[in-house]
């Protein structure tokens, strides 16, 4: 793609205002909102916007992390530092707990992104969260491209893409019955490039894995996977030390790195603008599983 970096400051301002509006609507109309916070760049931008929306007061929401147990240590450290510095409340729902007592079983491929749905829905029920902020963006994936900004989930946490509520202007309708909840996507209209331009403009710190670093990796399905506790090369896969960075962070066993020399947000902006491949296409094995992998997971209540 040759699209130039033309996002002007005013376009970012418009996106920022739109997101802040959404946070304030939710704070005013819901009783128990929660921000899904993974320590990835989109959730970090989301938290930054929420802080702006309520400044100089604190963020009136809890954070929830659905922990696969396959984490990048840098990301967990970042998460804990943010919670500590800002005095936020963090709930953690652990996939490991479910595997330990048999409520979930490890998949044959060993990856755990898909396993997050049940711990997520259980946490929503247990804490009676009524609004759940997700960092999903419509430009990420074709099922996400169909999402409303306020997206109703039934008692079972299910999304019904064939029967979504109309969403007019910026009049967001958050009405729901007991047991139902609303997923809210304040970053719906942001692109990956917008996110990076904003990180650079606002000087938002990120976990170090988002920038170029050296790592032992091997190639699988056209992705560079890190050698580590959750992913080991199979026969015929050779390990090499390369300079890479991550475009997304998820389950470490199926999130790929990309070869990159970008050491700052400004350099990432240039790289993303010139990229020939989408963020998920480059880095997520789980999305390639089938034609409607994300839709199916979202229907069940996934992020």
């Amino acid at each position: 793609m040759t699209a130039p970096v033309i996002n002007t400051v005013t376009e970012l301002d418009a996106l920022e205002s739109e997101s802040i509006f959404v946070f304030r609507e939710v704070a005013a109309e819901f009783e128990r909102p929660v921000i899904l916070f993974s320590g990835g760049k989109d959730s970090i931008v989301m938290l930054h916007l929420a802080r702006k929306a309520f400044s100089p007061a604190g963020v009136p929401f809890t954070l929830l992390h659905v922990d696969t147990g396959h984490n990048f240590p840098e990301v967990l450290a970042y998460r804990d530092a943010v919670v500590e510095q800002l005095g936020l409340r963090l709930e953690v729902a652990k996939v490991e707990d479910y595997i330990a007592d048999g409520r979930l079983r490890e998949r044959t491929d060993g990856t755990r992104n898909q396993l997050q749905t049940i711990p997520l829905l259980d946490a929503i029920n247990a804490h009676r969260f009524d609004a759940v902020f997700g960092g999903g963006r419509r430009d990420e994936e074709r099922a996400r491209a169909k999402e409303r900004i306020f997206s109703l989930r039934d008692e079972f946490g299910q999304w019904d893409p064939r029967n979504q509520r109309p969403e007019l202007w910026s009049l967001y309708n958050g009405r729901h019955r007991p047991g139902e909840h609303v997923r809210v996507f304040p970053l719906s209209n942001w692109t990956e490039l917008d996110i990076w331009n904003y990180i650079e403009r606002e000087q938002i710190p990120l976990p170090s894995i988002y920038y170029a670093h050296e790592r032992d990796v091997f190639e699988r399905d056209g992705m560079l996977l890190a050698v580590g506790p959750y992913s080991q090369p199979r026969d015929g896969e050779t390990v090499a030390r390369r300079t890479v960075r991550y475009r997304t962070v998820g389950d470490m066993s199926c999130t790929g790195a990309v070869a990159s020399g970008a050491t700052s947000a400004a350099e990432v902006v240039i790289e993303v603008a010139a990229s020939e491949i989408t963020e998920r296409g480059a880095t997520r094995a789980d999305d390639r599983a089938s034609e409607a992998a994300m839709e199916d997971r979202k229907r069940e209540g996934y992020f």
Partner: peptide, 29 residues
């Protein structure tokens, strides 16, 4: 843009798909 399973099966659009793109001159939603 027809990204839902049902849309592909039926060959029609059911709900709005949002796409983002830019040219030299401006950006579009």
């Amino acid at each position: 843009t027809d990204g839902l399973r049902a849309e592909r099966e039926q060959g029609i659009t059911i709900d709005v798909a949002y796409r983002y793109f830019a040219t030299e001159k401006r950006s579009f939603i």
